[in-house]
Structure formats: structure tokens, C-alpha cells
Design a protein around this nucleic acid. Structure first.
Lengths: 218, 218
DNA sequence: GTCAACGATTTTGTATACAATACATTCGAG
DNA sequence: CTCGAATGTATTGTATACAAAATCGTTGAC
């Protein structure tokens, strides 16, 4: 084992929480986790601190740390912020993007199309992600890129749920085209709006999904 | 001592780094810090982890953790993201703000004016901060509010430097008026643009400040 | 004189031991 | 029977001890 146990455990715990292995508000027992990972409490505690710092768990002093799955409201809020962040990336990218990066975006887009034709939704997911990550980078703002990546990653488990809804993919590709054309033309406002709407659709889908789950609840 | 040592030390270290007590790339020696705070290495290590998680320091495995002051480029990037985040807050707030919150903004604004008249720049700083925090909250998006607060806080030490530049305050108040009127009218795009420009000015000032500091350096 | 390899020292990472606080159960008073 | 206090137990927070890795210095070969 050439890697720090604390890091390994933090990654493992994050994965376990994202895959809903631990339910919301579950206490993350230090000694149980220590036994489970066959280490002492020390690296477990460091891993827990990392989870708390990243917001997927909360710590109540002298009580322990507890899983904190975002509720429906917070998820919608996070999707909304994602849309705003991507809009910002688009706004800046329209002013700064290089021809090389435009070419890369076009390639990713074509790969998306190929994946749709092949019916390979995993490949579509991957190439779609590449498309968006390229836009983050093309913003020319490394800090913004990192923040966008961070939230994107955090929302990943929830995005997977809604990908395979009926005619979404082809509509999504049209939106990609609009984004691309705005970037090519250097129209920052158009690029921002196109990206915001494109991402916001995911929030809408999610909203509808929730509404269907709990028809008249609360 | 009824508070966790780790938390106290983390706050203290953060403050020390923000006030440039530790210079960039300085190693944060666990045992020295432990002696300094009169505790063992354990709570010091937890504090360091928190610094690393918040990006104020970086950790090189088996080497230690080192202060990581953002360089000029990254600072400009952070100011740019701050401008974008506030623009997003303004966009959403224009759609959702309550009359009560508008009244609160007006109050904060009046307090800003009073502070200027009184020549009390500390009070101005405080009320200006309140104005912006109110807008974050008025976005109606708690997650966005937290993210904005986080970055705002992170940029705080750098904002203090440039506050007392010549005629900035009165210009700033005019911008606040424009923001307020856009919010009152529910014009989301206008509010977003007004806020983006308002905040971006700080980045510009900072840019100029840097250019003056190192006229032809590197 | 330079460079490399080996050993000593320092420092991080982990394990364990101890302290202090919170929780639960039980016992007793009303 | 219900509520509350007290003690016992469990769990977090901190200190210390140990292990492993990296840095530094020295020594020796070329």
C-alpha cells in the first residue's frame, strides 16, 4: 500500500455515500469503519474530516459525523448553480476560446452523435462530459474551471438517473450546436444563455422526476 | 476549553495565513505548531487538513503541508468568479426578491451613505458587506448563497487592500443604486450585469494595483 | 573536486492509550 | 406509573508511542 490510508478511505467512503450505500443521516461510526477498512481510528477520522469539508457529511461536535444527502430542494439549488456556473464558463469562453479548442469541442460533439447512433449511452455520457469539461477549460479561468468541475462531480450521481429519458439526447445535441455557434461567433451572452438553458433542463427533468415520485406529498 | 482544539487551531492558522504571517510556500511544521498552540500533533493535523481542503494550503504526501497563497493570476481569476457568482445572485434575486428584502437592501445602502458622510471607512466596509450578503440571500438559492459567502470570505483579505482608493466609494454607491433599481423592476439581466460590473471593478483595481507594484517585472 | 551511496536524523503517517463528554439504563422519589 | 437523577457505558477528542519514509550529512570511490 503506497498510498495514504486516509485518502483511500475518504475516496471509498465518498463512493459509498454516492451510491447510497449509507442512507441519509446515518452515523459514520469511527470504530466500525476502522474495523471495516482494517486500520485504526486515526486515518478514518482524517477521511471523515474530508467528507465534512466537502459537504457530503456534517459533524456535530462530540456526537459524531453523519451522512448528509442533499434533499430535493438543495439538489435543485445545486443544479441551478451548475447552470449558472456553466453559463459563466460559456460567457468567458466566447471571448477567449481558441480555434484549437473549438475544433476539440466539435470533435467531442461528433463523438456524441456517434454514440447516439450506436445506441451507446455510456459513450454518450462520457463524450457529453468531455464537451462540458472542454468548455470549463475554454473559459480561460482555471479557478472557475476547478469550481465547475467540483460541482459537476458532486452532481454526477444524480445526473445519471435522468439521462435515459426518452428524446432527450437529440434535443441535447441541438442545444450543443447552439452553444457551439455562439462560441464560434464570440457571442458571450448567447453562449451563456444557451449553456444555462441546456443545463437547467436537467434541473427541470429532475424536478419533474421528483414530482412524479411524490405526487401530492407535503 | 469547551471548543475543539482542532477547530480553534484551524481558525487561528487561517487568520495567520490571511494576515500573511506565514509567507507563501512556508512549511507548516506539525511539531512547531503543536508547541505553539500547546497541544499535541493530532489536533494540529486535523486543522491542517481543513486548510488543505479549503485550498489555503496544499499537502504533499510524506512531505508536509505548505502555505499556498494565490498568485496574481489566480487572484484575478477568483475576482472574476466572484463577479460571476454575484451576477448569478442578482439574476435570481431579481425574479424572487421580496419587498421586505428590498427594504433591507435600501437600509443597508443608506447606512453605506451615512458611513461615507461620516468618513467611517470601517462602517462603510461593514455595511457594504451586508448589502452584498443580502443579495446572496435574496437569490433564494441557499446553496448559491453559501458558495458566494465562501468565496467572498476567501477574498476578504485582498479586498481590504484596495478599498481606500480615491473616489471609489461614491461611484460604488451609484452602482448600488443601479443594482437596486434593477432588482426593484425585476429585470434579471440588468441586475446581473450591474452586479457583475460592480464586482469586476474590484478585480480591475486589483489588476492596476499589481501593475503598479511590479512595473516591468518578469 | 565531484558525485554517489550509505547511515543518521527528522518528519510524516498510523496505532494505541488516555481523557472527557454524551448517551442509556436503572433506580428511586413523588 | 411517570419523571428525574445518578451511575455505567459508549464514543468522541487528544496525547503519546511506534513505523515508515524522506531529507540531510558524511564518507568514500573515481
Amino acid at each position: 500500500m503506497d498510498i495514504r490510508h486516509a485518502d483511500r478511505i475518504a475516496d471509498a467512503l465518498e463512493e459509498l455515500i454516492f451510491t447510497a450505500e449509507f442512507e441519509d443521516n446515518a452515523r459514520l461510526d469511527e470504530v466500525r469503519l476502522a474495523e471495516r477498512f482494517a486500520v485504526s481510528r486515526t486515518p478514518v477520522r482524517e477521511a471523515l474530516q474530508r467528507l465534512v469539508a466537502s459537504g457530503i457529511a456534517i459533524q456535530i461536535p462530540r456526537r459524531g459525523v453523519f451522512v448528509r444527502q442533499p434533499g430535493p430542494v438543495e439538489l435543485l439549488e445545486m443544479f441551478e448553480v451548475m447552470a449558472e456556473l456553466e453559463a459563466s464558463c460559456g460567457r468567458l469562453a466566447a471571448l477567449r476560446i481558441s480555434t484549437a479548442d473549438i475544433a476539440r469541442l466539435e470533435t467531442a460533439n461528433e463523438n456524441c452523435l456517434s454514440a447516439i447512433d450506436a445506441g451507446d449511452s455510456d459513450a454518450y455520457y462520457r463524450e457529453n462530459e468531455a464537451f462540458h469539461h472542454l468548455i470549463y477549460k475554454a473559459s480561460g479561468n482555471g479557478f472557475l474551471e476547478q469550481e465547475a468541475l467540483r460541482l459537476h462531480r458532486r452532481l454526477k450521481p444524480y445526473r445519471r438517473l435522468q439521462l435515459r429519458l426518452h428524446g432527450r439526447m437529440s434535443q441535447s445535441m441541438q442545444e450543443h450546436q447552439r452553444i457551439l455557434s455562439a462560441l464560434r461567433d464570440g457571442k458571450s451572452d448567447r453562449a451563456a444563455t444557451a449553456l444555462r438553458d441546456h443545463v437547467a433542463v436537467q434541473g427541470e427533468k429532475f424536478h419533474r422526476l421528483l414530482a412524479n415520485l411524490k405526487p401530492a406529498a407535503e
